[in-house]
């Protein structure tokens, strides 16, 4: 595939290039919708398409007014602060419980490992609408519906599978003789964990945390049901905006979020490489 042999027939050549064109089209389909909103968000008009001025690259066709709206409109600001208040708390909960459990699960002898694993992974499998429905019913019974902690707990539950998966994956390559060596040299279990085990699995913990963070930060279905107007998050505000009166501010918000996800993606990729290097699984 990588190269075409010199003896390739005409049909082979034709297919070779046709295939690349097909793949190019699919890549275009994947990436274009995300790229296209970036220039559109700088539109000087309230339109959702390229104006003739924009196509002519006239500076008057572009403006920052939609960004300005995002940073001054109280609705959007409130939503942004709610997201910033909810996501880190949910992440903190999922990471602390999740890491502990992942360490427990990677011990050689865990009773009912399969059943426990299935239960802990289930928030990722069950469709969000069903989780949202169940949480809505149950949280309104116990008075958590419509409260900050209700949303945080719900989001923490949704983030846990990601932490479990990434941390257990890091622990697969963990050399257990290191903890034994530490214990042999007189470290107590807490010191062993803090000084030996934790630094080695930290990349996995952080990337699990980032997954949990993005899950909560992006999540809209559950917060729509479990939250009340006081917990309106950024995705919720976008959802309302898209459903009712779609305003171009959404495109500015979308562009900001794309930037955030590019940064997160890069961080995770760097962490993954670092973790593999630490565990000696790849030459780096």
């Amino acid at each position: 595939m990588s190269g075409l042999p010199p003896y390739a027939s005409f049909t082979q050549k034709l297919w070779h290039y046709a295939f690349r064109v097909i793949c190019g089209v699919v890549f275009f389909f994947l990436i274009a919708p995300i790229i296209v909103i970036i220039p559109l968000s700088f539109n000087a008009e309230d339109f959702f398409t390229f104006t003739p001025e924009m196509l002519a690259l006239d500076p008057d066709g572009y403006s920052l007014k939609h960004y300005n709206d995002f940073f001054t409109n109280p609705d959007w600001q409130q939503a942004m602060w709610n997201s910033i208040r909810i996501a880190p708390m949910a992440t903190l909960l999922s990471v602390s419980f999740g890491t502990l459990a992942a360490i427990g699960l990677s011990q050689p002898h865990v009773p009912f490992r399969r059943a426990i694993m299935a239960m802990l992974i289930s928030p990722m499998i069950v469709p969000l609408i069903i989780s949202a429905a169940g949480m809505y019913f149950f949280y309104s019974r116990i008075g958590l519906q419509g409260s900050y902690w209700g949303v945080v707990l719900a989001h923490a539950a949704l983030g846990i599978p990601f932490v479990i998966i990434t941390v257990t994956a890091t622990l697969v390559g963990f050399d257990r003789s290191l903890t034994r060596a530490a214990a042999n040299l007189g470290a107590n279990p807490v010191t062993t964990f803090a000084k030996v085990q934790m630094p080695l699995i930290l990349p996995g913990v952080i990337s699990g945390g980032l997954f949990a963070f993005i899950t909560s930060f992006d999540e809209v279905v559950v917060v729509l049901f479990v939250g009340s107007a006081g917990q309106k998050t950024l995705p919720w505000q976008m959802f309302t905006g898209l459903r009712e009166q779609i305003s171009p501010t959404i495109l500015a918000v979308a562009t900001i979020l794309v930037t955030v996800s590019v940064v997160l993606l890069a961080t995770i990729e760097i962490l993954r490489r670092r973790s593999e290097r630490l565990r000696g699984m790849s030459p780096g």
Partner: peptide, 28 residues
Amino acid sequence: REKARAFLLVAPLLLFVLLTFIAPIADM
């Protein structure tokens, strides 16, 4: 003892998921 220790590490999360996620599904 090893089994108990492993289980104790998992227990807080298990309880957490049971309360925040499994109970709501059961309620549904």
